[in-house]
Design a binder for these strands. Structure first.
Lengths: 348, 348
DNA sequence: GAAATTAATGAAATCCTTTTCATTTCAAAC
DNA sequence: GTTTGAAATGAAAAGGATTTCATTAATTTC
């Protein structure tokens, strides 16, 4: 039914081998013959049977992506970046959502291996250590795109979560906030959340504010969890002057709660988020946050993965994407600063 | 290098055919033999070579998804629904973003055909007619998940855009708004946008408000475009009392503009959106909108596609998902209503 | 217990490419 | 006009599964 190379060969009056050579633009076929073949391909609307090709060559031009929570704006943009760059480089994407469950991750890993993917991007954070073992065992090129992996063998692309969290907390302290509460990520999240936590602790220490674990309320990166976390915070620590939520959505949820309670943001309480999703510019008050580009993160991940797949020498398998503190409307200064030290910004 | 069925057969002391039968749980193999094979599979950690299987059987358990603008929250959830249900049904997903460009769509269609996908979900809206021709020609089961396709042969799953747009405009009229402006979608969008436009016109006619094309400003579904559209509207039609944006993000962008200008929402201007993205509940004022579930849309799309792939009889290849008018804080009533006619809601 | 079924297994063909190796064609060189 | 070397082509094997058809083993039936 489907047109095969055989049909093309017959129509062009050449052998299978020659057709194959033309299709893979081998240099050793006469211009004239190549033309005949190309015409036949055109005429028959021939499409290669990829399975046969993969079976023979063992390379699929397929990249696997396993993620979780990709409906969050930041990660949705990450996926977009991955897709765009993968297409650019001639890869197609096979995409699986793990819901953060190890079993599903394992499952997808198997499926993808069976499909002979050339490489894999991992965007899950909960059981990454177990995952790592499997992947290493499978010998498939991998890039983590959800945090810093200390294992020197494992390539990763990520924002510098520690530094970024440090930056934003340091900023809050610098403008005079002393009573700061936090809406952290899930304890299960072993990467981004833990790293941001480290950055926070570091900044607190530097500003001589004592660490109080009570002031860290766990959220799950949703608006809803930010909303209810804010409620807990105001309940337990009514004299809080600033809240740092570990992502923008929770920050926006928190703002919503405070406004509903008639608490003015930022006049009474300052709020900062993390990620710099587009939305943060459009809520009122616009969100002070750490800006990083999910799209770029995705792009860089594929770039790195591609280098590894092609066997290029990789100068550094730990890649950081830039981040920037963006001060908008949701934060208030409790003490004045000289102009020059006003905005802290950093990128690495 | 890789373990093949041959290795399994040798270890188990049976033939290739038997191994294959066990793997596909054929009934005609003795329990005892099956056990031997399973043990060998286990021991060798055998993984099937999918390409070989696809080559032979011509079915891939692969579903292609071609979309555009999937970073928008509503569509991100649609993708999530697709993924979840596809996994449930034993399909893996190959995902491509077309950026709304016909060439890329064509390209992905080819790639997917070459990979022998079992079916395809289309979420693009710009050149759907040309796409349709290709797909029909390819003879691959397809489901459109981005609007109503009138061609009776083509299955689609969608919200009833006409009815939903009608509902929300009718509501605005009912509560006394007469000066309504609109932020429509791109003219290139031949599905959702045009359908919503039809619904709007219908509602205006029913409420005896004359249609004025000047009052329809084109946006592109981003916050930014909503913001600048609102600016144009206020500029040209300062006595506008309500704005209907064709999605929630543009509505939120519009709100931001108005608030910045010191125009009170909803006291001076009412705003309504479309989609019911989570975010709409958390902005201040919370958004009045048409709620539909992207997740369910995705789920239903795969359900339908699966039926078609399996050759089941499909009682209706045009599926509508429910929608509901949700009145929150961004709209104001200009005249009072009796309680019972207050909230209009409909689902189909 | 022999014949007739039925169940379980195996051998070999097949799916469609790529690629190695052998062969033919062509052009250059003497 | 041979010979030689390079360039162009073709035949056939290989890749790893499924499946048809033939064969053997196990039951059933009388």
């Amino acid at each position: 039914m489907d047109v095969t190379m055989k049909d093309v060969a017959k129509l062009a009056g050449v052998s299978l081998s020659t057709v194959s050579r033309v299709l893979n633009d081998s240099s050793l076929v006469r211009e004239e013959t190549a033309l005949k073949v190309k015409k036949a391909v055109e005429k028959l609307d021939y499409q290669i049977n990829d399975s046969a090709r993969i079976l023979r060559t063992n390379t699929s031009n397929l990249i696997g992506v396993i993620g979780a929570g990709m409906e969050h704006p930041f990660l949705a943009n990450l996926l977009k970046g991955i897709e765009a760059e993968a297409r650019e480089k001639g890869f197609a994407l096979i995409y699986g959502d793990s819901d953060g469950e190890f079993e599903k991750e394992q499952n997808y890993l198997n499926i993808m291996k069976q499909k002979k993917i050339d490489g894999i991007i991992l965007i899950t954070t909960n059981y990454y250590n177990d995952l790592l073992n499997i992947v290493k065992n499978y010998q498939i090129p991998v890039v983590f795109a959800s945090g810093y992996i200390s294992d020197p063998e494992i390539p990763c692309v990520t924002v510098d979560n520690v530094a970024a969290a440090y930056d934003i907390v340091e900023y809050l302290c610098r403008v005079g906030h002393k009573e700061i509460a936090f809406i952290k990520g899930p304890d299960l999240d072993l990467l981004a959340s833990q790293e941001r936590l480290r950055g926070v602790k570091l900044a607190l220490r530097m500003s001589d504010i004592k660490y109080d674990s009570q002031k860290f309320i766990e959220g799950d990166f949703t608006f809803e969890s930010g909303y209810s976390a804010a409620e807990k915070i105001m309940d337990r620590f009514p004299n809080t002057s600033a809240i740092f939520a570990f992502n923008d959505e929770m920050a926006i949820g928190a703002i919503r709660y405070l406004l509903e309670q008639g608490i003015k943001v930022p006049e009474e309480i300052s709020i900062v988020g993390f990620d710099g999703i587009e939305l943060g510019k459009y809520v009122k008050p616009a969100l002070t946050t750490i800006e990083q580009s999910g799209y770029e993160l995705g792009l860089k991940s594929i770039e790195l993965l591609n280098q590894i797949i092609e066997g290029q020498e990789v100068e550094d398998n730990k890649v950081f994407i830039p981040h920037k503190l963006v001060v908008r409307e949701s934060t208030n200064k409790l003490k004045n600063l000289t102009e020059e030290m006003e905005v802290g910004s950093k990128s690495s």
